[in-house]
Design a protein around this nucleic acid. Structure first.
Lengths: 157, 157
DNA sequence: GTGCATCCTCTAGCCACTAGAGGATCAAGC
DNA sequence: GCTTGATCCTCTAGTGGCTAGAGGATGCAC
């Protein structure tokens, strides 16, 4: 990056938000929980961000888009700040997340099968004959016992 | 149902919990938010549930296992209480949920591709050469822009 | 009567934000 | 200089679907 790169100019939180696609309250939230360092301020207390802060925030956003949780992102940022360390830890984090995603996909595919069947079976008459309601009432009609499934990792909007 | 059916005997919240697989605090929570009617109590204020309450709770649990959120379950319970109404509403709820599940699967599959690629590309050296970290830093290396994805419907544990 | 399990209510915490109150400051146009 | 509207500030509370824990009462077996 050249010296005159726009990434080295200071920007308000609003501009940073436009630049990175991260909403203003979310940036403040990341600062509050220590993911972003508190930036310098103007005389009237407004935050001023430099290029490094912008790149860090872009990193966070991208990791969130990939579904990493904030704790994982904290670790990844730490690693990213220490280029000489081996990257095994980063790999472990990514591999764990991949495994989570794959497990989640499997769970949702099982749900999809069940839901499709419910929908297909329903003839569209009265509630008393509705397959949707009936299946919900009678667990035994389900294909599997799809037992107790974890919540999905939250993904950003 | 016969008079001597076990489903018509009164049970404590603990027994109901064992019977349905729904945890005690969760049963109280469902009562608090109006999914379950407040049951009669003993002289010492302990809840007593009958077979109907048990069936209602089993319905809720099953619907939660299928990933319906509590608002949808509220509607499904309402419908289930009115057997003479047409079941179109139930179908709409199920179809909407199915569409959500399918969308979620598609999103997660895109994530999986990205994460697999990150992991495969990483040679396991230093952080400075780590593909995992690198991809996170440089959004441009991503296959898609997987823009802004909604949080998954929460599934119970 | 002595434990221990179970029950009661109530509050607070989880995640990753989001919404809104209530107010200060800035930049542009007149 | 004045007004207007956008942007900024801090702070609290709410989202969903529970879960954990405090602090205490009751029930039941030995």
């Amino acid at each position: 990056m050249s010296i005159s790169s726009p990434t080295s100019a200071l920007r308000s939180i609003g501009r940073l938000s436009l630049e990175t696609g991260v909403k203003v309250p979310t940036i403040r939230f990341y600062e509050k929980i220590g993911l972003l360092a508190p930036p310098p301020r103007t005389a009237s207390d407004r935050r001023l961000y430099d290029g490094a802060a912008s790149r860090r925030l872009a990193f966070i956003r991208h990791a969130r888009q990939l579904g990493f949780d904030l704790e994982a992102i904290r670790s990844l940022l730490d690693l990213s700040d220490q280029p000489d360390r081996p990257c095994a830890d980063a790999n472990v984090i990514a591999a764990r997340h991949l495994a989570d995603v794959e497990a989640k996909i499997a769970q949702l595919q099982a749900l999809r099968v069940e839901l499709s069947r419910m929908k297909a079976d329903c003839a569209g008459g009265r509630v008393s004959a509705c397959k949707v309601i009936e299946v919900l009432h009678d667990h035994g009609r389900c294909l599997s016992s799809h037992d107790t499934v974890d919540a999905a990792p939250a993904l950003p909007r």
